[in-house]
Nucleic acid binder design. Structure first.
Lengths: 207, 207
DNA sequence: GTCTATACAGGGATAGAC
DNA sequence: GTCTATCCCTGTATAGAC
């Protein structure tokens, strides 16, 4: 059972802990998940978990970091993955991973404490999204794109609405996050509007 | 020392508990405030607090309810307090009450659990804001007001951006919540825009 | 109605043995 | 790396004093 050279046992264990933890958050809710629960699910003792993570809070922050790596929202000016459809796709996908939105939202609140492990995560995340949005605008020849608001303000608003809709969605899962953001983008970034080849359904004051 | 007829001792005590609790949230952060801390500050034993509230969670939910009563955001179609400037004013005021935004945000997340005391609070709150916004639109002769999006979608977005900006503000207090919402309202509810060019920038197109 | 005293189950975290 | 054992803190239920 030789482990793959670049995939030592410790890393596999660590990943397994993160997977089991997210599963539990999805089925029981963040507040009801204890280190003991996770340990039981993994098949070890609670103290063993703290060998891989400094604290429970850090453990959960790592779940978000790993998710972002998978989603690849990193600011590569080349492929510009910040396009409208990619953003909405990530949103829709998150809504299908039980617990991930609850986890993200909970940590977004706890991160207000500068000492919380998630604090630096959210600071870095917002800066990354800002740069991605700027790179996207630059990719369009720096044209204002017909946007009614400055790029920084627009980015801040889109991020805020996304987070806020997630809070609403947690309370009422009937809230259609993607459709709402879609409508907002129509207004804030009109040049991004979907081609909608056949027949344009709406026509707000386009450029 | 006769207490005012309509203000029995129990109510005063209850209010004091809520005040001390909010103070502690402001100075120590929600997560670091225990019932023992509050009890100590009030000068009683922890169990005494549970004479006024069913649980710690209910205690904190009551702080939000009391705030809303003071702010008077209730849907009185008469005065339509949902006007732009009134809304922004409440936002600015909240930013000056240490802890209230942290408390609101934290409960907004915990309220995802239908059994949490804050669940019904947030459901009712959103429905109330929806009705207030609708009443406001009706007050303007039912004219679409030149809004690029339907009233319900607009309301949902404004609530979401408010909540989302609060999350950003908790992490970075330099975020200007009011200014950002102000800019967004310019776009989503253009008829509300202040006659900016020459005249003073205040004066919303109120009733 | 208001409160104290007490007790309990469960939480995260730590120290040190293996 | 993983264990056991332990520590201190949490929310809160209960019983009873005033």
């Amino acid at each position: 059972m030789a482990h793959r050279g670049i995939y030592p046992k410790g890393v596999a264990r660590r990943d397994e802990i993160l997977d089991r933890a997210l599963e539990l958050v999805g089925s029981k809710g963040y507040s009801n998940v204890s280190l003991r629960d996770i340990a039981e699910r993994v098949g070890v003792r609670p103290a063993a978990l703290l060998h891989y993570f400094d604290s429970k809070e850090e453990l959960f922050t790592e779940i978000l970091r790993r998710r972002d790596e998978r989603d690849e929202i990193s600011p590569s000016a080349a492929s510009v993955p910040a396009s409208r459809e990619a953003y909405l796709q990530i949103l829709r996908h998150n809504a299908e991973v039980p617990g991930i939105i609850a986890l993200y939202s909970r940590l977004a609140v706890d991160a207000a404490d500068p000492d919380h492990p998630a604090h630096s995560y959210f600071v870095a995340r917002h800066e990354m999204l800002r740069q991605t949005a700027n790179a996207f605008a630059d990719g369009h020849d720096g044209v204002p794109l017909g946007m009614p608001l400055p790029i920084d303000v627009t980015t801040r608003i889109v991020v805020a609405v996304t987070d806020g809709l997630q809070l609403q969605w947690l309370i009422d899962p009937d809230v259609d996050m993607a459709a709402t953001i879609d409508a907002l983008l129509d207004v804030l970034v009109p040049s991004l509007r979907a081609p909608s080849p056949p027949e344009p359904p709406r026509h707000v004051g386009d450029d």
